[in-house]
Design a binder for these strands. Structure first.
Lengths: 152, 152
RNA sequence: GGACACCCCAUUCA
DNA sequence: TGAATGGGGTGTCC
């Protein structure tokens, strides 16, 4: 992360994804909070996976930021959070190979996240799903609603 | 099932369980029909679960049989019926672990059912609840009544 | 073997 | 409407 010494705007992001059938039609939602104001982003994919949706919501949220920010990003996916905080460095050293020496899945999405993480100062926060975190549950509902909307 | 070649008594069993609150106080009922004669069994537990009651009613009914029988047993619980017809073999192979690699719940009850299934020739039949099967609905009412009786 | 998430089904309830 | 008791599966990583 660059700009360590500058004062950055502080943004909070909650995001969640959903995927009916897994694989199947998927939705995602993100809530961005800046100076107490909320912005909601949502999206849909006809055929996807739960994990792709979990990565996508983070990417879409971070792409909305117009300048480098300090971000607290909350997700209930350890795939996303540990991916960025624990596994990413190793993957890069090993040429994007996992512990079984196979190429990791969803490589382009991880590389997008890597670029976004270089632009911003991101604190990746894991929270347990369905444990009463209001914004997380709102994202969950919104993500599912995206699927419902497009299925009908 | 032993005694494949013997002619066994043919018994029909309907059973159902109920649990107020789940977990909470529970009741169960079974109707045994042999040569057109009905026998009714019921029971109660102060603190239990819906699924424990569904297993218990089958166990209690089968334990009433004094000799190996051919049994048609009707339940609206896929937990009971699929447990015995689809999942049991796999559980035994995998050391009583479910698909999430955790030990299955209500292990002792399943093992009792396994022993009973070895003694008798049981046809496990699932039927949809509240779809007008008179004996199933009678069991439902009787099971709920057990709770009512003991709560007052 | 572990973890998180996503889903499907039935039942029991509030 | 929503929650608990239980099972089956996939997506992904370590």
């Amino acid at each position: 992360m660059k700009n360590e010494n500058k004062i950055l705007k502080e943004v909070v992001i909650y995001c969640d994804g959903s995927c009916k059938g897994n694989p199947g039609p998927g939705g995602w939602a993100a809530i961005l909070i800046y100076r107490g104001k909320r912005k909601i982003l949502t999206g849909f994919a006809k055929e996807t996976t739960n994990n792709i949706m979990e990565l996508t919501c983070a990417i879409k949220a971070l792409e909305k930021l117009k300048e480098p920010c300090t971000v607290a990003l909350y997700s209930d996916s350890t795939y996303l959070v540990k991916g960025m905080t624990e596994w990413m460095d190793n993957w890069k050293e090993k040429g994007w190979k996992n512990s079984k020496k196979k190429q990791i899945k969803n490589l382009e999405l991880w590389q997008q996240l890597e670029r976004l993480a270089q632009k911003h100062n991101i604190y990746w926060q894991w929270l347990k799903g369905h444990e009463g975190h209001p914004e997380n549950e709102e994202c969950d509902r919104l993500a599912k609603y995206q699927i419902k909307k497009y299925i009908k």
